[in-house]
Structure formats: structure tokens, C-alpha cells
């Protein structure tokens, strides 16, 4: 991975020593951009930024105000709040994608950033998954359950669906946590949903279904 391909993490932290500590932990894997307050963070944030770490309590603009502005500008990035106070439900309502309690452990910080980056990649995983599920839906509409049970193509499809679902779920993170759940739904709502007629575009793999080639069709690979 070249430097240009490293994900970008923007940090807004007014205490310089803390900010430099984060940078030390993160700079191996990420391109780190340091800003010292909310206004600097707003000036620096753009679509090249993947994850923003916002200190909750900063002079002038608070983390919450910065987040609101980022959302209003519809910048495609995930925002984690770094807070010394154990956050309440307000973090979810404000629209943060994650929170980290201060002072964070190194691993916790790395894990949180990785989870947010994974979630940002869920669009692609979803597109694959939906496509496979749509293919199954089409086969179910064309074939009887008995025919499907006999079909290797269909059983293979079920296996691929299972592994693709696992990938989607890994990207989503822990849906038992409210902040992750709302963040995942925001990702779905704001995300590129891809082509909606995915169902029709996949037809070549079971065009033969009516001709009896269905059981032996080798067209199951993309």
C-alpha cells in the first residue's frame, strides 16, 4: 500500500500533546491530519477524509457543532467523538458514528477507526449480497422447491450468499450497540444503492434454467 492509498484520519484536538500521541499511534497505517480546534477542522475536512476524530470539548466550536456542519455539508466521512464524559444517548441523536472515551487505549482507537472504515465499505459488500439474493429470488420464482433442492447451482448459490452475508455483517459491526446501528442505517441511507434492476442484470446465469441445463449449468461464476 502506497502512501496515497492510506485512509485519511483527521484529528481535532486542542491539547497538542494528546494530538501528537494519537498521531504516533496512527501514522503507520493512516495519513493523519492534525487540527487544533473546531474551525481548523472544518477548514480541513473534505471528501478525501475517511474518519474524523472530534474532541467533544474544544474552545470556540464544540465537537457537536463541527459534526453538524460536516453533516450539513454532506461530506462523505465517518465521525467519532472523543469524550472524557461517558456519553449518553445524545451521542446517537447528534449523529456520531462512534465514540471513544478519553483517554483512549491505543488498540481501542485503532479498532474504532478500522470499524468505521469497514462500514464505509459496506456498499460494495451489500451490492454483491443483494445481487446473489436477487438471483435466488428469481430461481425461486421459476423453479419448485424440489427442483431447487436437487440443483447444484442453487446449493452453490446458497453457499455464496452465506459467505457474502458474513462479509456484510463484519463490515456493519455490532448491531446490538445503538450508536453502531444508527451509523449503519445512515450508511445505507446516504450510500450509493447501486443499480436497482440488479435482478434483471444477472439473468445470464439461469437463462438456461428452462431448457433443462439448470442442474448442470456452469455459469454460476461472475
Amino acid at each position: 500500500m502506497t502512501d496515497q492509498e492510506q485512509p485519511v484520519v483527521l484529528i481535532a484536538e486542542d491539547e497538542q500533546t494528546i494530538a501528537e500521541g494519537y498521531e504516533l499511534w496512527l501514522s503507520d497505517q493512516y495519513e493523519v491530519r492534525l487540527t487544533a480546534d473546531g474551525q481548523e477542522a472544518l477548514d480541513a475536512v473534505d471528501d478525501t477524509v475517511d474518519v474524523v476524530l472530534l474532541d467533544r470539548m474544544m474552545p470556540e466550536l464544540s465537537g457537536e457543532q463541527v459534526l453538524r456542519e460536516i453533516r450539513e455539508r454532506a461530506i462523505d466521512c465517518r465521525v467519532a467523538m472523543v469524550t472524557a464524559v461517558e456519553p449518553d444517548f445524545d451521542v446517537v441523536e447528534m449523529g456520531f458514528d462512534a465514540y471513544i472515551t478519553k483517554p483512549p487505549e491505543r488498540q481501542e482507537l485503532l479498532d474504532t477507526i478500522q470499524q468505521l472504515l469497514d462500514r464505509a465499505g459496506v456498499d460494495d459488500a451489500f451490492q454483491q449480497y443483494h445481487s446473489l439474493m436477487a438471483r435466488r429470488g428469481a430461481l425461486q420464482a421459476q423453479k419448485t422447491e424440489a427442483e431447487l433442492e436437487q440443483s447444484e447451482v442453487y446449493q452453490d448459490l446458497l453457499d455464496r450468499i452465506e459467505s457474502q452475508r458474513t462479509e456484510v455483517d463484519d463490515n456493519l459491526g455490532n448491531m446490538g450497540a445503538e450508536v453502531d446501528f444508527v451509523s449503519a442505517v445512515r450508511e445505507v441511507e446516504d450510500g450509493d444503492s447501486g443499480f436497482d434492476d440488479v435482478e434483471l442484470g444477472e439473468g445470464e446465469n439461469f437463462e438456461d434454467a428452462d431448457t433443462g441445463d439448470f442442474e448442470t449449468s456452469e455459469g454460476s461464476d461472475d
Binding site: Q127, H130, M133, L172, F181, A184, V185, S193, D196
Partner: peptide
């Protein structure tokens, strides 16, 4: 669109499952 509904339902059912 059905793709968005599909994705939302996946996240939502996962939440209920967990």
C-alpha cells in the same frame, strides 16, 4: 428503491437478532 429497502431490512433484522 428496493435495493435501499433490502439493505435497511438487513441492518434492521440484524439489530433485532442481536
Amino acid at each position: 428503491d428496493s435495493s435501499k429497502v433490502f439493505r435497511f431490512l438487513h441492518v434492521y433484522t440484524k439489530r433485532i437478532e442481536e
